[in-house]
Amino acid sequence: MTKELFEVKTGLAEMLKGGVIMDVTTPEQAKIAEQAGAVAVMALERIPADIRRDGGIARASDPKMIKEIQKAVSIPVMAKCRIGHFAEAQILEALEIDYIDESEVLTPADEANHIWKHDFKTPFVCGATNLAEALRRIGEGAALIRTKGEPGTGNIVEAVRHMRTITTEMANLSILRTDQLMAAAKNMGAPFHLVAQVAETGKLPVPNFSAGGIATPADASLMMQLGAETIFVGSGIFKSEDSEAMAKAIVQAATFYDKPEKLAEISEGLGKAMKGLDMIEINPEDRMQDRGW
């Protein structure tokens, strides 16, 4: 694993900054997303809200469907594999997917190990609920981190919790003396060299995006103001009343996240956002964010 290749992997994430990555299940939805200004699409068979509703085992998507989406758009196409399922990841790499999401939205394939992502030329994005988890994934080769949030809920509360946790933990590391960093790495259960790097720079060594529960332009603005550099929207677009309008509005919100007057304009008359779920309606064993470690 050369540093050079890693720069090429994070490089694509740099190009996605200030944008919106949208979950799509058909070539038609992919075109709507691209037309609305999405910087990339995530190709999957069912959006998280439907996976949650349907139950059963959620696996990587049919290559045929992925190829159709690749053909339909010119923006990067991402796809999900199960946590630890490196064979699914190998298949996605063979399909020349632009970014692989080792995702808690699908049913985990390995409860002990995540994929050793350094083995792949295709970059990976992984979810995290806190800094230690983010650094473990980066240690395995993830070139992009996103909050897990609670997928398919249209409820921003968990993404906020995860982003605030990550940024607070980074700030806490930055005030430590060098002689405290090994103990910090031991307590976090995270690779020392990455802990030391965060302590020095005050930020993640890879881009930091947000996913899980974003359903409105205001949600996108909130996450960007809390430190997210780009937004993933899963169910929030194609479960809303007017998908095209919502998609466009969230794209604009990712650019003008710090301009309230502009956001007011953007948010006007979008129709109903997805209905969503309160966290107390979700059984603890159905929480997707607890998948992986």
Binding site: G18, G37, A38, V39, A40, I75, V251, Q252
Partner: peptide, 14 residues
């Protein structure tokens, strides 16, 4: 800058 030309073009117009 670099980025997605379709996204940038759209936002420039809008």
């Amino acid at each position: 800058p670099g980025g997605e030309s379709t996204t940038m073009s759209l936002l420039l117009e809008e």
